[in-house]
Simulated assay, not measured.
Amino acid sequence: MTSVDLQDVSTQLNNKITSIKRSMQLKNMCNDPSLTSVLQKIGLELSSIRDVLDIFQMQIQQQKTELRSLQEMKNAVQRNAEIAHHLLENIPAHLPKKAVEASTVDAKDVKVQKVTASSEPEKNSVKNKHFIREMEYLLMDEFNQVPGYMKGRMTYDQINAVVKEINATVKAKYKILNQPMKSMSNTTRNQYHAFKEQETKETKGQYFFVEADIKDFTRLKVDKKFHVILNILRHCHRLREVRGNNLVRYVLL
């Protein structure tokens, strides 16, 4: 056995001997009447300290539980922040916009007619006449539900870019149709009559466009890609076709 081991053994034995001596001293103190009251006070203090330690332990356990809850809340906030940042970085170029229904506008006009002078209904009827419906932009969920064979490599933004151009076409077309004949130039008057000739019983009261309108009012190419997008929009219930007289009319839904 090395000297280091003997020294450790000696230290341990000395510690035990010291502990035994202290125990004997305390035992002897119990037999001394003059020290009994001191020992009782010490016992009470130890009991009080034990109660305080129990309270501390309960508070520590409670704080651990609160700490876990706060950590879970922190993780949830971080996840929400990441989601919000992702949404901020990936805002669609064209957000869907709910078109105002003509029936809603008519209902408002009826209320206005009941409470305003005779000149007011005329103004409102003019506004109704000039109301032009727009096609709603495609939602991402709708785009994801389009069959893969139908959309091919077409992207969400490409489709909504065409929707934007279609709305511009319809707006330009019906702006001419709502324009007073007296204010029209010869070119505009010819367009007006051409638009009127395109109308049928099925398109009465509806907003529609034809391929020639796309060529006249936008820079879009009426090619295979364009027809694929029209097919997707028809699948998503944004438009329907009305055929007749060798002409395809795309009616907004």
Results as ranks from 00 to 15, higher is better:
residue 224 K to R: 15
residue 208 F to P: 04
residue 199 E to N: 10
residue 213 D to K: 11
residue 209 F to Y: 11
residue 212 A to H: 07
residue 199 E to S: 06
residue 244 G to P: 04
residue 210 V to S: 03
residue 200 T to V: 11
residue 231 N to W: 06
residue 245 N to A: 00
residue 242 V to H: 01
residue 235 H to G: 09
residue 194 A to I: 02
residue 242 V to K: 08
residue 218 T to P: 05
residue 195 F to S: 13
residue 233 L to Q: 13
residue 206 Q to P: 05
residue 195 F to E: 03
residue 221 K to F: 02
residue 198 Q to L: 00
residue 199 E to W: 02
residue 209 F to T: 13
residue 241 E to N: 01
residue 234 R to C: 09
residue 203 T to G: 05
residue 231 N to Q: 14
residue 194 A to V: 10
residue 219 R to W: 10
residue 229 I to F: 01
residue 212 A to T: 12
residue 238 R to V: 09
residue 204 K to Y: 01
residue 197 E to K: 13
residue 220 L to H: 09
residue 201 K to G: 06
residue 197 E to G: 13
residue 236 C to A: 15
residue 242 V to D: 00
residue 217 F to G: 02
residue 195 F to Q: 09
residue 239 L to Q: 02
residue 193 H to N: 15
residue 196 K to V: 05
residue 231 N to R: 15
residue 201 K to W: 05
residue 207 Y to P: 13
residue 198 Q to N: 12
residue 211 E to L: 06
residue 219 R to A: 12
residue 239 L to P: 00
residue 214 I to N: 09
residue 215 K to V: 01
residue 228 V to E: 07
residue 196 K to W: 00
residue 199 E to Y: 04
residue 217 F to S: 12
residue 241 E to Q: 11
residue 205 G to M: 12
residue 235 H to V: 04
residue 240 R to M: 02
residue 221 K to S: 14
residue 198 Q to D: 11
residue 195 F to I: 14
residue 232 I to H: 05
residue 230 L to Q: 00
residue 239 L to A: 00
residue 241 E to V: 04
residue 223 D to S: 05
residue 232 I to F: 07
residue 227 H to A: 03
residue 227 H to T: 11
residue 201 K to S: 11
residue 245 N to V: 08
residue 220 L to M: 14
residue 213 D to I: 11
residue 199 E to P: 00
residue 221 K to P: 06
residue 215 K to P: 03
residue 220 L to Y: 10
residue 231 N to F: 07
residue 208 F to K: 04
residue 197 E to M: 09
residue 213 D to T: 12
residue 240 R to N: 12
residue 225 K to E: 08
residue 215 K to A: 02
residue 238 R to M: 10
residue 224 K to F: 15
residue 207 Y to G: 14
residue 197 E to Y: 02
residue 226 F to I: 08
residue 205 G to V: 13
residue 212 A to V: 03
residue 202 E to D: 10
residue 228 V to W: 05
residue 210 V to H: 02
residue 204 K to M: 06
residue 202 E to R: 06
residue 233 L to I: 03
residue 201 K to D: 06
residue 207 Y to K: 10
residue 200 T to I: 01
residue 202 E to V: 02
residue 235 H to W: 05
residue 206 Q to E: 07
residue 199 E to L: 06
residue 195 F to G: 14
residue 246 N to C: 09
residue 225 K to M: 11
